[in-house]
Amino acid sequence: MAGLVRPITLVGTPVLHRPCRPVEEFGPALRELADDMFASMYEADGVGLAANQIGVDLCVFVYDCPDEDGERHKGAVVNPVLELPVLENRRLDDDEEGCLSVPGPHARLARPDRAVVHGFDVTGGQVTVAGTGLLARCLQHETDHLEGRLYIDRLSARSRKKVLKEFEALRAEADALPG
């Protein structure tokens, strides 16, 4: 797996803010896309990446992160359907969250501490990924991306504004560096 590192799409880019198209063809191009996504995610030091984060309007995400027991999970999910615990069984994990498309700042965001995603692998085989801890957060975060939603869209207006202000300040600082 030697994918191509592609630039990460940043907040404000239209492809991040609308639902992605379902994948209809499972072939070499999809496998190549997943390889590129893994390469891009690793280069950016991430634990998950959705296709629209590299500008591709398709329902695919990749992940490589631990669950609450520290066990590492890695894979790609195509056309994911997220399943969360019913309200009476739902416990929230109120932890910090960040995003490669909003690099720099993090914010506290409560999410269910368990999540399951049903979908397909890059060959079209059915997959189910059950996650706890960081993996549960990752499954929810990446599925949100494919629905056109960023984690900052789930924050309070005040927290969202603070994250975006910090992001813009970091970008201005980086742009001011000599070339």
Rank of each mutant, 00 (worst) to 15 (best):
E83K: 06
E173L: 14
C65Y: 05
Y42N: 12
G133R: 06
A174P: 00
V122Y: 04
D95K: 09
M1W: 11
L4Y: 04
D95L: 11
A44Q: 09
P105I: 09
E168P: 00
C138N: 03
G148K: 05
G125N: 14
E32P: 00
I8H: 10
P66N: 08
A136M: 04
P103K: 03
V47Y: 06
P28N: 06
A44V: 06
L146V: 00
D144Y: 07
L30S: 09
V56D: 01
Y63K: 01
T132A: 05
G48K: 07
T123Q: 14
V11E: 07
H73V: 04
L100N: 07
G48S: 09
V129Q: 10
D121L: 08
N52A: 12
L82F: 05
L87A: 14
P80F: 05
G75S: 05
P22Y: 01
V11W: 12
R171A: 05
L100P: 04
L139Q: 02
E96D: 10
Q126S: 12
V11A: 13
E32M: 12
V163A: 01
G131R: 09
V78Y: 03
S101D: 09
R91S: 15
R6I: 02
R114V: 12
V15E: 03
V47D: 04
D175T: 02
R31K: 13
V127K: 04
F61N: 07
M37P: 02
A34T: 01
A169L: 11
L134D: 01
V62M: 03
E25L: 13
R158V: 13
L87D: 14
S101A: 10
E96I: 00
